[in-house]
Write a protein that binds this DNA or RNA. Structure first.
Lengths: 336, 336
DNA sequence: TTGTAGGCGTTATCAA
DNA sequence: TTGATAACGCCTACAA
């Protein structure tokens, strides 16, 4: 005794299934009285259309597949939240699938989407472009988020990491700091790469005399602590530390404070992301409005699905610098 | 030129669609040589089965519908993370739909799931049981998370909020605090209600002479600040504040510090949830392992789907007290 | 305005 | 071991 089908409704209303379909979908070629009867029958039976069958017939699932990597806390939820908001606004459901670091698994995850979604949102900062290209079902529209490299074939949204890093370098220089060190993120990660590159380029342009010093990290708090210890142990001068993300910056803060150093007097410290903690620790950082990017990705994809053209191949989102206490200007420097 | 279908593969391998289906699903009644040919054809065409059609035919979608309210940051992602982990472990996809505070919308969200999922995970701490019952498709197995009231009809998982609140009361009393005040969460919210009730009951039992004082709040930081100000302005004695969640506790901390009060010397402060911030602020709290609950909910649901019986009607998850500096024992009190 | 029938892509039953 | 063919639940020409 499964759920009522359209046939049950038809039988009860004493009409054909075609009429039921028409009535329920609001077509106008149904006589008023007939429609009433059908609606009543449907209500009595508690009929709910079977979305699966519907999408098979319409070749339209009204669902969007979302494939995300393992994102750290707030990032994940913010991204999904933004997507969900826009998706439900536009009448789509989200089919979620986490993709772990493995290209193989990613391919499987993407394949599992075929026949249940109308398009794909893929964030894969660690999958090489060719692998991704190969794993993406050719017939499925897709929007890439923070994809590595230039994807000619698929529109993509990207955070302007380089601009963010550059803004931070400008901010630190303006604050009177002269010896900047960058703590980089994981090697394979595009965001990390671009932030490091932005740091390097900005420094080369704005302070060509200054040596570019980059310490390897992995986006985790511990890496930040380790980097701070390394800086303290080194005899190279350093007065400002710019971590590729907030968690490393926070680890850095801990290690520095533990070593009896003052921030920003002894070292300025800055991060990237603006996680909620950053505000509490008064950490200067680059705000990434990931929810906005998620929402925008959905919007772009739905536009494609509805035939509104693909738009710009690459959409860069500008992050914003949030200046807080950990990078207050040095005494005697006007611009903070 | 859409994607290749099973028919294309059959044509190319010069067999019937039945054989293709058998070969691709690993049935053993296919001759080795035939299977080879089919697999080759499928690979050449880049054939990927159409999950929608498959689930229509099998009456099995291998997907789970997840309907969550608007959860604050970490909570949402932790919950989904736990669900996703377990779901992918057991071969299911997650179909996500946010439910806003409105019963009406909730019903719509639930209906949209019919025919695309095999079962439902519903967290609705603010929807009255009858509305929820009515909105839930009768034929769809469902597991409720933190549902209000006792749901005879559906198995549910619930956080033992009362036990958590009780543990906190015990902890504060053991720490030598004598005048406890509780800042409650939103009125309609079950978690909030249960925490308040746990506070009230524990106090009645463990310190019957102590007046039960509860201030209304709404789970937001501002409510915590307001409550703190109210406590400071009042002439009723108070030496310990137990907020129904961490955000209010944090608001409380701010307001107290702003007023020049010391924590825990002047006031002990405790929260509920153990958000990441709590650790940084050394806030004593009750740790809620929401990811675990999410994973467990998936596990329960999949068990049901696979006919392993519904298990316990209500499964209570015990939270754990995390004692930190904001509730350090009063001087001269041994037990911290 | 209404009904009949074919098709969407699979799986499963039944013969061969 | 294989192949026709009827479901699964819905939508939509086409006919009436």
């Amino acid at each position: 005794m499964g759920e009522a089908t359209i046939r049950d409704v038809a039988r009860r209303a004493e009409v054909s299934v075609a009429s039921v379909s028409r009535a329920l979908n609001g077509l106008n070629n149904v006589r008023g009285e007939t429609r009433e009867r059908i609606l009543a029958a449907a209500a009595e039976l508690g009929y709910v259309p079977h979305a699966g069958a519907r999408s098979l017939s319409l070749a339209r699932a009204h669902a969007i597949g979302v494939v995300l990597p393992d994102l750290h806390g707030e990032f994940f939820s913010e991204c999904v939240r933004g997507m969900d908001r826009e998706a439900s606004r536009r009448g789509y459901l989200l089919l979620l699938s986490n993709m772990h670091d493995d290209s193989e698994q990613a391919a499987v995850a993407l394949r599992a989407m075929r026949g249940r979604v109308d398009g794909l949102l893929v964030m894969a900062p660690h999958i090489p472009p060719e692998s991704l290209e190969r794993a993406l079902p050719a017939a499925l529209p897709a929007v890439l988020i923070n994809a590595p490299g230039d994807f000619a074939s698929r529109p993509s949204l990207r955070l302007d990491n380089r601009a963010g890093a550059r803004a931070m370098v400008e901010h630190l220089l303006a604050g009177g700091y002269r010896h900047l060190v960058h703590i980089a993120g994981p090697e394979g990660n595009v965001d990390a790469q671009e932030r490091a590159r932005g740091f390097r380029d900005a420094l080369a342009e704005l302070a060509p005399d200054m040596p570019v010093r980059i310490i390897a990290g992995d986006f985790n708090e511990e890496a930040g602590e380790a980097a701070a210890r390394q800086i303290l142990a080194s005899d190279q001068p350093c007065d400002a530390i710019f971590a590729a993300n907030d968690m490393m910056a926070i680890g850095c803060l801990h290690a520095l404070r533990q070593a009896g150093k003052r921030v920003p007097e002894d070292f300025a410290v800055a991060g990237f992301d603006d996680v909620p903690l950053a505000r509490y620790l008064a950490l200067t950082t680059i705000q990434v409005r990931i929810a906005e990017i998620g929402a925008r990705a959905v919007s772009r994809l739905v536009d494609m699905l509805e035939g509104k053209g693909p738009g710009a191949p690459v959409e860069l989102h500008q992050p914003e610098l949030i200046a807080r206490a950990t990078t207050a200007a040095r005494p005697g420097v006007a611009n903070g």
